[in-house]
Simulated assay, not measured.
Amino acid sequence: MKPNLRAWLLSTSMSLLTGCSLTPPKTFTFQADVPENFTVTGTANYKPAPGETCIAPTGEAFTTGSLFFKPEQPKTAHQVEFKVPLTDDDHGCSMVLRGLKLMIEGQWGKRELDMSLASAGFSISDEPSAHLPANSTPPVRVFKRQCQWFFRTAGPKRFIRKILQCKALGANGQMAKPMIGGSLHRDQLADSTVKLVLSVAKIEKPYYKGWWIETPKGWKACTGVWGTQNEEPCTKPYKFLESFKMPDGRDCTVYPNCTE
Results as ranks from 00 to 15, higher is better:
133 P>N: 10
133 P>E: 12
134 A>C: 08
134 A>M: 13
134 A>E: 08
135 N>W: 09
135 N>H: 09
135 N>A: 12
135 N>Y: 05
136 S>H: 09
136 S>N: 02
137 T>Q: 13
139 P>W: 06
139 P>A: 12
140 V>R: 04
140 V>H: 03
140 V>L: 04
140 V>E: 03
141 R>L: 15
142 V>R: 12
142 V>N: 12
142 V>P: 06
143 F>N: 11
144 K>C: 13
145 R>H: 14
147 C>P: 05
148 Q>I: 09
148 Q>L: 11
148 Q>K: 08
148 Q>S: 08
149 W>R: 01
150 F>W: 08
152 R>K: 14
152 R>D: 13
152 R>H: 13
153 T>N: 02
153 T>Y: 01
153 T>I: 02
154 A>V: 06
154 A>R: 10
154 A>L: 13
156 P>W: 08
156 P>A: 14
158 R>D: 11
158 R>P: 00
158 R>E: 10
158 R>W: 05
158 R>C: 05
159 F>I: 04
159 F>E: 13
159 F>Q: 13
160 I>P: 01
160 I>Y: 01
161 R>Q: 14
161 R>L: 09
161 R>M: 10
163 I>Y: 01
163 I>L: 13
164 L>N: 02
164 L>Q: 03
164 L>G: 01
166 C>N: 06
166 C>Y: 04
167 K>R: 12
168 A>Y: 04
168 A>Q: 11
168 A>T: 05
169 L>S: 10
170 G>E: 02
170 G>D: 01
170 G>R: 01
171 A>M: 03
172 N>M: 06
172 N>K: 07
173 G>Q: 03
173 G>N: 02
173 G>W: 00
174 Q>D: 04
174 Q>H: 03
174 Q>N: 08
175 M>V: 06
176 A>F: 05
177 K>H: 14
178 P>C: 15
179 M>A: 15
180 I>A: 15
180 I>K: 04
181 G>N: 12
181 G>A: 15
181 G>T: 08
182 G>M: 14
182 G>Q: 13
